[in-house]
């Protein structure tokens, strides 16, 4: 096992572990937050970074047995999944929240004022 392989393996392990850590915090937040607007805060953000980090790790590991054309194509495809989710995740979050807001559901608040103007006068 050459030194390059070892370095590659360590980088892959670190990337995928951080990705899974963010997935786990997203899931914990998804269970703990009080209403679904806040739950979307947890899932919409953590899933995006989790997918981007883990896909980068998997794309690096797909190159581990040589830089042939097939391997590079597979790696590029995995990176496209990451880019697609980077653009699509926030859009899906926004669409779901938009439909909930239009249906007239207001968020859980402490003081009962749901919508406030910004900047305050």
């Amino acid at each position: 096992m050459s030194i390059l392989t070892v370095v590659l393996n360590i980088v892959v392990i670190v990337l995928i572990s951080f990705g899974v850590f963010f997935f786990a915090t997203g899931t914990v937040g998804f269970l703990r937050f009080p209403d679904f607007y806040s739950r979307m805060q947890a899932t919409g953000k953590c899933d995006t970074l989790g997918v981007v980090l883990s896909c980068t790790g998997v794309a690096l590991y797909a190159l581990h047995d040589g830089l042939s054309l097939g391997n590079i194509l597979v790696s590029l495809k995995i990176m496209f999944i990451a880019v697609f989710w980077f653009l699509g995740g926030p859009t899906a979050t926004h669409a779901l929240l938009n439909s909930a807001f239009k249906s007239g559901i207001l968020p859980w608040t402490k003081d009962g004022k749901a919508i406030i103007e910004w900047p305050p006068k």
Partner: peptide
């Protein structure tokens, strides 16, 4: 508690399944 919680949950399961499929390939 609400319908939209269930929809979000399905979406979250979708992202994790995507990654499990990639790992299956490895």
């Amino acid at each position: 508690p609400t319908v939209i919680d269930r929809i979000i949950s399905v979406g979250v399961v979708g992202t994790k399944t995507l990654l499990v499929l990639l790992l299956m390939g490895l």
